[in-house]
């Protein structure tokens, strides 16, 4: 049973399955230049009723799961307190530091400001999900090779952000990496090593897509 959120057996009215699927269609349509929003959906007026304990299905590190959670539950708290995936760190809870960065559907985001309720159908990847059977991800190895950390607390967030940074195409030069890695504070000041690590791993991450 859920520890963080609610942690009770209260179950409010559920979001209808139909509503969720339609939500997913809109989500899929959210690509640039595509306008499957309002008008197309206007006729599909199945109004999902609100719930303080919605049920949501999602995958974390490739594992699909369904949970009924207090609507307030953030991805960060769910990972750490419920799933014991404590590699994702909590540094501020207000998206001011980047320690909690994970990938959602491939894009880096702050898990502290992400509600679980919004993750229907989403794929979440955390630091625990990027190494393969004990083989480090190239970005992880690059952080070791370049001493891209000291205390190590911001490191999982830095690494997830660095992977996102490369995939976004913002790792072209040291100044660009510095700017596009500035959403991850490192109080120890390992920035020089972090930039070197991103440069080292860039090509491998790009090839892996």
């Amino acid at each position: 049973m859920a520890k963080t959120p609610g942690g009770t057996n209260r179950e409010g009215p559920r979001v209808s399955r139909r509503g969720l699927l339609q939500g997913s269609v809109a989500s899929g349509a959210a690509a640039l230049g595509n306008f499957a929003g309002g008008a197309a959906q206007a006729q599909a007026d199945a109004q999902a009723t609100g719930s303080t304990t919605p049920t949501v299905s999602f995958s974390i590190n490739g594992k699909t799961q369904t949970a009924t959670l207090d609507a307030r539950t953030t991805l960060l708290d769910y990972l750490r307190e419920d799933l014991d995936l404590t590699g994702t760190k909590v540094g501020c809870n207000h998206a001011q530091c980047g320690a909690c960065t994970v990938l959602i559907d491939g894009a880096r985001v702050n898990s502290c400001l992400t509600l679980m309720a919004t993750l229907e159908g989403s794929e979440v990847t955390t630091i625990e999900g990027i190494s393969d059977e004990g083989e480090l991800h190239p970005m992880q190895q690059a952080f070791i090779d370049n001493d891209g950390f000291q205390c190590g607390y911001c490191t999982p967030g830095q690494i997830m952000s660095a992977i996102g940074c490369v995939r976004e195409g913002h790792a072209g030069s040291a100044p660009e990496i510095r700017e596009y890695m500035s959403g991850n504070l490192c109080r120890c000041g390992a920035y020089k090593g972090i930039v070197a690590a991103v440069e080292q791993a860039r090509d491998q991450v790009e090839e892996a897509g």
Binding site: G87, I127, E128, L136, F143, I144, D147, F149, G152
Partner: peptide, 17 residues
């Protein structure tokens, strides 16, 4: 290189919380 590096880059180093 730091001997605790692998724990830190994999999120396996346990901090207090």
């Amino acid at each position: 290189h730091r001997i605790d590096g692998k724990l830190k880059v994999t999120g396996s180093a346990n901090y207090a919380a």
